[in-house]
Design a protein around this nucleic acid. Sequence first.
DNA 1: ATTAGTGCAAACAATTTGCAATACT
DNA 2: AGTATTGCAAATTGTTTGCACTAAT
Lengths: 142, 142
Amino acid sequence: MLKEKLLIEDFKNILKEKGLKCTSSREMILEIFSGNKRPIRAEDSYNKLKNKIDEATIYRTISSFKKVGLIRRVNLRRESVYFELNNDHHHHIVCEKCGEIEDFKENSEIEKILGRIVEKSSRFKIINEHSLELFGVCSKCI
Amino acid sequence: MLKEKLLIEDFKNILKEKGLKCTSSREMILEIFSGNKRPIRAEDSYNKLKNKIDEATIYRTISSFKKVGLIRRVNLRRESVYFELNNDHHHHIVCEKCGEIEDFKENSEIEKILGRIVEKSSRFKIINEHSLELFGVCSKCI
DNA sequence: ATTAGTGCAAACAATTTGCAATACT
DNA sequence: AGTATTGCAAATTGTTTGCACTAAT
């Protein structure tokens, strides 16, 4: 699990730790994930880095970040695929109209659910992760 | 919300209600959703209906089913997009190795969470839906 | 008869890949 | 120096669209 706020120094260490070379592309992309509080799409980071990094590199970088657990895929119910930094575990509320996203944290109730599921299920005894996403309408869109 | 078990009769009524014509393609595709306990991809239903229905029709049908609320998109963390019949609300546990899916139901704890979120959030007072998905390893893959 | 739905082929968008050039350790 | 990473262009995959034909109301 990563820290809340990441600095350039941290980037380098994280990459080294994961056995990835520290390149300026990776730093730039990581910086975007770190600066953005909300999940973003490959396209978004490409837009921010146009003329600096090739699109293929964006995809390759996102893919290797995901492989080493630096970022995670978020399950919003939108057409595109979203990713966010894999630091503090949290959930999202998504506005079905404008796409606005709010984070929230929740542990105790979900822990109860997980415990009960593992007890009941004959097929699943190991649960590593979970995602809980809420879909509603934000106050602006009411 | 739809009934637990959909019959052809119900199906015809739903389509009529939504102003959609009842065609054999739609019946076949609905039958697949109805027969499959697990979420499926557009590709899967295409594979089952090859030589019977064109791929474009599959996509168009899935799209209109979704629009009228007959099916819903499921948030698994896989590359492809999954859909399932929009009848009884439930959640999934997905095996990270083989993709095996198990359903489970849960209400009370989640209701508590929703209540608390709405109370706390300044931006979201309306929550219409939610998705909770667990990711783990099934007994076959341990 | 009218209009929605379908098949086919072509178009598109998002993502991936091969390869030679480049940058990191 | 040696290997991983990048840029570029081409390939691939998943999905959508235009249009003439067919089928449901």
